[in-house]
Design a protein around this nucleic acid. Structure first.
Lengths: 129, 129
DNA sequence: GCCGTTACTTTGCGGCGCAAAGCGCGATGA
DNA sequence: TCATCGCGCTTTGCGCCGCAAAGTAACGGC
């Protein structure tokens, strides 16, 4: 047998929150958790390699979900939006990271266990050039 | 200073392949890497907690991208599709996992470094000078 | 005043995830 | 023998989303 009933959902990873599990937003949240004092919009943009519009959109989503707070003020006679993780955002992000870690563990373990197990169906595994 | 030029893209994680970085497909790939001999459609469906339609769609995408192979045959007088990781799929997935691991490391490290660093900024909003 | 730059926001579109409906087919039963 | 059921997928349809390009606003030289 290949699977048993109690394996149902073994790899479903329901904790991968749709809001967080998105490349750009993952970037943003990681940047923010690494800069707990907050980051101005342009810095965040550079760190994440995002365009203005893109970052704006994602920040709106994250803010809507109360994962980040946006403090719109001004500095050097210019508008400045400082972005921060909220306390609950931090919690949710850390929870998400736990799931992500589980994914990596599951997969890495499996990948290591049988690099050429079941070779019947798989092409011979070749090294990357 | 908050960021320096050479930090550009520090958290952009370009290796997070759009095809792979999707909850359902991540489930599928992890299941498959854990079962190198392949999995029949219904087993995969249960492992991943997906609906038929959903799994079908994602398999089509993964197959299109040559990450998985679909072997349509029959067993017990019933149609049976066996899904397997391709060799290149395996490599790409492993590459992706490396990036994911980096994300987890970056974030976990940062989160641990300052669980309450900059805490003042989290709820009471303070103005940067 | 005009032009360029900075700091965002809005708009438009293509694509995607998801659930519900559909299809094919063998087994079952009247 | 012919409907009916259930299993194994596939297709359809809708709504949301990511992304880039265009738009707005406000300041700083010239």
């Amino acid at each position: 047998m290949t699977t048993s009933d109690r394996d149902d959902g073994r790899f479903s990873y329901e904790g991968l929150d749709r809001i967080i599990h998105e490349r750009a937003r993952l970037s943003v949240l990681t940047s923010l958790v690494a800069h707990p004092k907050g980051l101005p919009f342009p810095d965040l943009k550079r760190l994440c390699g995002l365009t203005d519009g893109n970052l704006s959109r994602h920040l709106a989503v994250l803010s809507e979900a109360d994962l980040v707070s946006l403090e719109k003020g001004s500095a050097h006679n210019r508008p400045q939006t400082v972005c921060r993780l909220t306390a609950s955002g931090r919690q949710r992000f850390i929870g998400y990271l736990g799931v992500l870690e589980q994914v990596v563990r599951d997969a890495a373990e499996a990948a290591e266990r049988g690099p050429d197990a079941g070779r019947r169906g798989l092409d011979p595994v070749t090294k990357p050039a």
